[in-house]
């Protein structure tokens, strides 16, 4: 609905309806509409608690959650927890992505690598990595190592599977072009295989991020002395429901932020795709 309205408003000056010269108030109006529903929900929640429809003890109102968020922030408990959790995900993800990429490249680019590794990896991926927690604790204790290993394991497989499939799914017709214009194998990798598999890799990266956050949540709840999970577990002990909600909000914000980062990466790296071109508004 909104797009029709903006289109008619700008139809006169130019056929490029997506041009950056679009009036500002027309951009803001749809945004306002989008956040209207969450705001209404929060207001209803607040009202329900105030009217006594919901018990404040198990379901604290948004205002109380905001308040305890503020208390935690100024008493310097929030940022350290956030950083600890972020560090776990970052390190685990980095290792997982590196491993998944290396495996995907080896199996994607060489038949030998495929025969040697792919069956084993396809078998391993069916094993839910969270089931390894008891083993991880026995092997690595209860420090940072088992958490990071678990996150890395969870993140590696989506990367591997998507990259491998993307490399193998690259357009055969373009390989014929590469042959007729005399590209060497390294050139074919650089100009054809890697760019062709980048969209698949980024899909894998997004999935890996999702898995990494879930793994973090689970791993942090088992035994932790720092991090968002620790904050939540601690709050449970003392029935501080508001702090549990603060922790949940942090997880949500972190998840959103990283997803946004990948999307930003996509628009940068996949600038050649028509969908991206449309989003950037530059049909050169």
């Amino acid at each position: 609905m909104m797009s029709t309205r903006t289109a008619t408003a700008t139809a006169f000056p130019a056929p490029h309806a997506q041009s950056p010269a679009r009036p500002k108030n027309l951009v803001r109006l749809p945004r306002l509409r989008r956040i209207a529903a969450p705001l209404l929900f929060l207001a209803a929640w607040q009202a329900a608690v105030a009217l006594g429809l919901i018990g404040a003890r198990l379901m604290p109102p948004p205002s109380a959650i905001a308040e305890s968020f503020w208390h935690l922030a100024i008493s310097n408990q929030l940022l350290p927890s956030l950083l600890v959790s972020l560090a776990r995900v970052t390190v685990g993800l980095a290792i997982g992505v590196a491993a998944g990429t290396a495996l995907g490249l080896v199996t994607g680019l060489s038949r030998l690598g495929e025969d040697l590794l792919d069956p084993t990896l396809q078998m391993l991926r069916t094993l839910p990595h969270l089931a390894l927690i008891p083993l991880m604790i026995l092997w690595f204790g209860i420090g940072e190592v088992p958490k990071i290993v678990l996150i890395a394991l969870g993140a590696a497989f989506p990367i591997y599977l998507n990259l491998y499939a993307a490399i193998r799914g690259a357009d055969r017709k373009l390989f014929e072009v590469a042959a007729t214009i005399g590209l060497s194998f390294p050139e074919t990798v650089a100009h054809l295989i890697l760019p062709a598999s980048l969209p698949g890799f980024l899909v894998g990266l997004r999935q890996a991020l999702g898995v990494a956050w879930i793994t973090l949540v689970v791993a942090e709840q088992i035994n932790a002395s720092a991090g968002i999970g620790y904050l939540i577990m601690n709050a449970r002990e003392f029935l501080e429901t508001d702090i549990i909600f603060v922790g949940l909000c942090l997880y949500a914000v972190l998840g959103l932020a990283t997803d946004y980062a990948v999307r930003l990466l996509e628009t940068r790296l996949l600038a050649w795709r028509p969908s991206t071109l449309g989003a950037l508004g530059r049909r050169a």
Partner: peptide, 15 residues
């Protein structure tokens, strides 16, 4: 020194 033009353009979309 030979070159081919196929029925489809077959350009590398990312270049």
């Amino acid at each position: 020194a030979r070159a081919v033009v196929f029925q489809e353009p077959r350009l590398f979309p990312w270049r």
